[in-house]
Design a protein around this nucleic acid. Structure first.
Lengths: 194, 194
DNA sequence: TCCATAAGTGCATCATACTGCACTCTCAGT
DNA sequence: ACTGAGAGTGCAGTATGATGCACTTATGGA
């Protein structure tokens, strides 16, 4: 246990290019102690550990918690969830996404000739980034209308109603990144104590 | 900080109906210390804290970590993702699901007259639980075919190919719970250390 | 009332976390 | 070789975590 904590402290320190003295002074702990903690040769108190984790700016849990294996989710071609299907062969496919907070989603959209998709306003602060891969796409946001050809891209707020349409006669395809900032991050319930 | 830790220790202890002496002995720590820790009147070493967390069977992080607000995701009627759409008005809608590992998903399926959906085999160990809400549904699993009327339910393995069909002339509807056990639990990558 | 059990406090004592300093070792840079 | 910086060790002293015991208070049952 102490070894694991020490390894993490050392890793964080070296990641910042700090010397033992720098960390010691910054944490208000003797350099001797920092060395002992890093080597697992000590049984530090939570106070000491807290001061160190604080100096590193990582929070206490980060030191005692086993590092989470960074989840890698692969969505193979055709495996994505089609969350919208148009009338002329169009599809909106969610191919990748992150967990809350700060959700980022990557979509692969196809619009058949004449297809049009209208999206309601998303959560406040949502951003959308779009690049046309094939064909022509018309985006309407807040009364503005822009027409994009292959390679064109646009960034616009997703927290107002908007729509994608294919005005052309051949299928259109575009990549869409949606960023939805920290839902539920601003307030912390902390209810279950009672 | 110490106060927060103490509160959690006390909570866990009382949750188990243990006395101070019981926890103290079980943890191999003096009763006096347990009291001090619970009241935040001490600055325990990680060793002491580890013995206590161990006795409680909750792991060290659980004591230093702020309790995670249990995520509650509400999917309103009509908001679910339709991951399959049939030819006669049928839809397979994912209305709720948990995060890995041990994924549980709740689906709301509608099958138009004559609609049929064939599903490939899922991950090994997957279970499916189905109850018909409306109409008649025929389920085929591993060569067996069962016909279910309103209220009927069936449990079957999802790790073999199977299909749902509506043999009747009116729309059918059923609830489907899918349980996919611990994907990625058996081996831990632990790669990002190098 | 008397007794038993559990929570909580005060204090003397022991064990050890923590400090400070002096020292060694290694590795660039000149 | 010399120098300086950073990593790591050994040790004595000090602060404090941790213990054990005696005590108080509160609650509930015979």
């Amino acid at each position: 246990m102490a070894l694991a904590i020490g390894a993490r402290v050392k890793q964080e320190r070296q990641l910042r290019g700090w010397t033992l003295d720098q960390l010691a002074e910054s944490a208000g702990v003797s350099r001797r102690m920092v060395v002992n903690v890093e080597q697992g040769a000590a049984n530090p108190s939570v106070g000491t550990l807290l001061r160190i984790s604080d100096a590193l700016g990582v929070g206490l849990p980060a030191l005692v918690e086993p590092p989470r294996p960074k989840p890698v989710n692969v969505t193979r071609s055709g495996e994505g969830a089609a969350l919208w299907i148009g009338e002329s062969g169009g599809r909106g496919v969610l191919v990748a996404g992150t967990e809350p907070p700060d959700v980022v989603e990557l979509w692969d959209w196809t619009l058949g000739s004449g297809d049009r998709h209208v999206s309601e306003a998303h959560t406040s602060g949502t951003k959308e980034l779009l690049q046309v891969q094939q064909g022509t796409v018309t985006v309407e946001v807040a009364g503005q209308s822009v027409t994009l050809d292959v390679g064109d891209a646009v960034t616009f707020p997703g927290d107002v109603a908007h729509s994608y349409a294919n005005p052309g006669t051949e299928p259109a395809r575009f990549s869409l990144a949606v960023f939805e900032p920290g839902v539920g991050t601003r307030h912390r319930p902390e209810a279950s104590d009672a």
